[in-house]
């Protein structure tokens, strides 16, 4: 980066010895390997838990759905946070994902709202 302009018009040429070297953070990555294994195991256990819980009667079907979704969300959170490195990911990506989350939630919630609040007798007339 000798001159201010080089940032966009050229990349520093990687000299061929350095790119084959093990990066400085190799040890850190190696330590992550154990974490990945643990998370993988946790996911497998939680899969078993999901299946098991679905045969427990929590009082109503809706309650069972809520319980099942909570476990699934925990699993999805683990995958996103650890495997997809969202834990400690750059702020730019987080911003997008939060927006996406809001809009996706809007899509779910408002669809449900619109469905649960019809003028009685018109929406379900065909059933």
């Amino acid at each position: 980066m000798s001159a201010p302009h080089t940032d966009h018009s050229s990349q520093p040429v990687l000299d061929s010895s350095s790119i084959h070297d093990v990066p400085a953070n190799a040890a850190e990555i190696a330590s992550h390997a154990v974490e990945y294994l643990k998370v993988g195991a946790a996911l497998l256990v939680l899969t078993g838990v999901t299946v098991g819980l679905s045969y427990v009667d929590f009082g109503s079907r809706n309650m069972n759905i809520v319980v099942g979704m909570i476990v699934a969300t925990i699993k999805a959170g683990l995958v996103a946070a650890i495997f997809m490195h969202l834990k400690g990911e750059k702020i730019t990506i987080w911003r997008f994902l939060v927006m996406t989350g809001i809009f996706a939630a809007g899509l779910f919630f408002l669809t449900y709202l619109a469905h649960s609040d019809p003028i009685s007798g018109t929406f379900h007339a065909t059933h």
Binding site: L113, A114, D117, F123
Partner: peptide, 13 residues
């Protein structure tokens, strides 16, 4: 959903 006022949408929505 302001395109859908005619679908029998309830007052709250």
């Amino acid at each position: 959903a302001h395109h859908m006022y005619m679908t029998g949408m309830g007052a709250k929505v």
